[in-house]
Design a protein around this nucleic acid. Structure first.
Lengths: 203, 203, 203, 203
DNA sequence: CATGAATGAGGTTTCATTCAT
DNA sequence: AATGAATGAAACCTCATTCAT
C-alpha cells in the first residue's frame, strides 16, 4: 500500500518523465535543456533534482518507462494471438500502433544511440524479448512443419527490421496511412519467406 | 592539375574529416568536442578553423563525403550486376561490406538525427538513390512477369530495412561472420517474397 | 508598486552596470573582459548573463543609463535658469559637475567610437538635446537684440566644445580646481563672443 | 647617407603604417586585425613582424608618425603668420585642413584614448606644442596691450577645443563646407573674447 | 627577405547543478 | 517540498605571434 507521499512523488516523477520525453524527442539529449524540461513540466528547475539525480538519470527513466510499457503490450498481444501468422501480424500491428501513439519515444530511439553508453543496447534489450517470443513461435511452427525450415531468431529480427524501417518512414513522411494497412502489407510481403508454398494472394 | 598548396590543403581537410568521423562516431555531434577532434587529427584546435568555418561545417563534410562515396560504390555494383536477383545481392553485399570498412560512418548515421537540420533526411536522400535504382529493377522484372507483382519501391525499402538491421546487429555484436555469408542468407530469405514460386525449397 | 523580485533584479542590473562602467572606463569595450566585470561586481561570470544577453548589451545599458541621467539633469538646470548668461552658466556648470561625479562615463565616451554601431552618434544625440535647448535660448536672445546676431546652433556647439575640452583637461590633469571656478572662467571668456558690448570685466 | 637596405626597409615600414592607419581608423585598435592590415598593405602577415615587434608597436608608430607630421606643419604655419589674429587663423585653418587630408588619423585619435596606456597623453603632448606656441603669441599680444589680459595658455586650449569639436562635427556629418569657411567663422566667433573692443561689428 | 600555415592562450557564452530562502 | 538565482566548468571560436620553408 502506497503512502500519500509515495503517490505524490510517483506523480511528480511521471510528470517530469513526460516532459523530458517531449523535449528529448524535439532536440535530442545534448540539446534538450533542463530549463525547457522544467518549463514543459510546469515546475521549477531545482525541483527536478529532488526527483532525479541528473539529466542522464531522467533520460534513462524516460527510456526505461517507455520500453517497459511497449514491451509488455507487445508481448501480451503476441501471446493473445493464435497461429504463427496471426502472432506475426500482432507483433507488426502492435509496434506500428505504438509508434503512432508514442511517436516521441520512437523519435528519441531513432536519434540517440550510442552516445549515452546504454541507449542502443538497452533498446536492443527491450526489443529482444518480444523478438525472442516471436522466434519461439517461428521455431515451433517450423518444427511442426507448418512453415519452411528457417533460423527462427534471425527471421524474427528481420521481421523486426522491416517494421522499424516502416515506422521510420511513417514518422518521416508524416504518413496518414492507417497502421493496419501498412501492417497487412508487411505481413503479406514477408509471409512467403516463411510459408511452405506461395499461399499469399497476389499483392 | 593541382598545385602543391591544394594538395596539402586537401590532405589537411581529409585528415580533419577523418578525425572528426572518429570522434563523432564515438560521442555524437553535441558531445564530440573540438579539442578532441584536434588531438585525434594531431593538430592544434585553431588549425581546424583554417579549413572549416565551424563544428557544424565539419560534421556536414563528414557526412557528405561518406555518403557520396558509399552511394557511388553501391550504384556501380548494382548496375554491374545482371538479373534482379543478382542486383539485389549486389545491393546487400555492397552495403554490408561498406558497413564493415566504414563502421564509424554507420555509427554516426545511426545516432545523429534532425537536430542538425539535415542529417536524417540527408541520409534518407543518400539511401534513396540506390533504393530507387533497385526499385526500378524490381519494377522491370515485375512487368516482365519474372517475379510477383509487387509495389516496387516499397519492396526495395523493405530490403534496405533488413540490411540496415543486419548491419546494426553486426556492429553491435562485433560479429565475425563474413559479410558474404550474411548477404547470402538475406537474399535467400527475402527472395521468396518476390519470386513467382518457392524456388529455394531448402534454406 | 514593485515586487521584491523586481527590486532585487533591478539592483543586480545596477550593480552590473556600475561594475561594467568601471571596467569599460579602464580598458575600453574590446579590452574590458567579462571576467573582470564579474569580479568587480562581486558575482560569478554566469550570473551576468541572467541579466544581460551579451557584452554589447551591457555596454549599451551603461551608456543609455548615464546619458539619460546626465541629459535630464542638464536640461532641468538650463530651464531653471533665467536669462541667457545664466542659462549658459548652468549648462557649463552642470556638465563640469557631472563630469566630476561620473568621471568613468566621460572616460568611456571619450574612448569608444563607432565600432559599436552607435556610441559616437548616440553620444552626439545625447548632447544634442541640451545643446539645442541652449541654441534656442541664444536664438531668442539674439532676436530680442540682447546679444549679437550669431548662428545660434553653431554657437551652442562651440560652447559645448570648450566645456568638453575643459572636462578632458580636468580629467587628464586630475585637476583640483573646483568646477565652479572653471565654469566661471569659461563663461567670462565666451561671453564677449555673444555680447553686444565688451561688458565683461577684465579677466 | 642611407643604404639601399635602409631605404627599402623604411619604405616597408611606411607601407605598413599606412595600411594600419586605415584599418585602425575603420575598426579601432582591438578590432583592427593583423590579417586585415597585412592584406591592406599587400604583404603577408608574417612580414609585418619583420618590421614591427607587435600590434601595439604598429599602433604607436602610426600615431607617432602622424603626430609629428601634423605638429610640424602646424608650427610652421603659425610661425609664418604675423600678428596674433593671423596666427590664430593659421592654427585653425591648418588643423581643419589636416583633418581633411588625414581623416583617418583623426578618427583614430577620436576613438582610441586611454586604452593604450599612452594614446591620450601622447595626443595631448602632440597638441601641446602648437598650443603653447599659440599661447606664447597670445601672451605677447596681451602684454603689449593689443588684446585683453587673458590667461594665455587657457585661452589657447579653448581655441584648440572649438577646433577639435568642429573637426569632429565635420567628420561626423561628412560636411562639404570648405575648411576655410569654417575657419573664418571660428576666428570671427572667438576673436571678441580676446579683442579689446568689439572690432568685428558684423559677423 | 618573405611567406602563410600552424599554434594556443584567451575571450564570450551556455547550461547542468547547487543552495539559500 | 519547492523555488530559481547563482555558480563555474567547459565549449566554441578568434587572432596575435611564431617558424619552417
Amino acid at each position: 500500500m502506497k503512502s500519500k507521499q509515495q503517490v505524490v512523488s510517483e506523480f511528480r516523477r511521471t510528470e517530469i518523465v513526460d516532459a523530458a520525453r517531449t523535449i528529448f524527442a524535439r532536440h535530442g539529449f545534448a540539446l534538450g535543456i533542463m530549463d525547457e524540461i522544467a518549463k514543459e513540466a510546469g515546475i521549477a528547475k531545482g525541483t527536478i533534482y529532488l526527483y532525479f539525480r541528473s539529466k542522464t538519470e531522467i533520460f534513462k527513466a524516460v527510456l526505461a518507462h517507455d520500453m517497459k510499457t511497449l514491451k509488455c503490450s507487445t508481448l501480451e498481444r503476441i501471446d493473445a494471438a493464435t497461429g504463427l501468422r496471426d502472432k506475426i501480424g500482432a507483433f507488426i500491428l502492435t509496434r506500428l500502433e505504438n509508434a503512432e501513439t508514442r511517436k516521441e519515444f520512437f523519435r528519441i530511439m531513432d536519434s540517440e544511440q550510442g552516445n549515452l553508453t546504454m541507449t542502443r543496447s538497452q533498446y536492443r534489450e527491450f526489443l529482444r524479448e518480444p523478438v525472442l517470443r516471436l522466434a519461439a513461435a517461428i521455431e515451433h511452427a517450423s518444427r511442426k512443419g507448418e512453415i519452411r525450415r528457417v533460423p527462427a531468431e534471425k527471421a524474427a529480427w528481420l521481421i523486426a527490421d522491416v517494421i522499424r524501417g516502416t515506422i521510420q518512414r511513417r514518422l518521416l513522411e508524416h504518413s496518414e496511412t492507417p497502421p493496419a494497412e501498412d501492417s497487412r502489407f508487411l505481413l503479406d510481403f514477408i509471409w512467403p519467406s516463411l510459408a511452405l508454398k506461395p499461399d499469399s494472394p497476389e499483392l
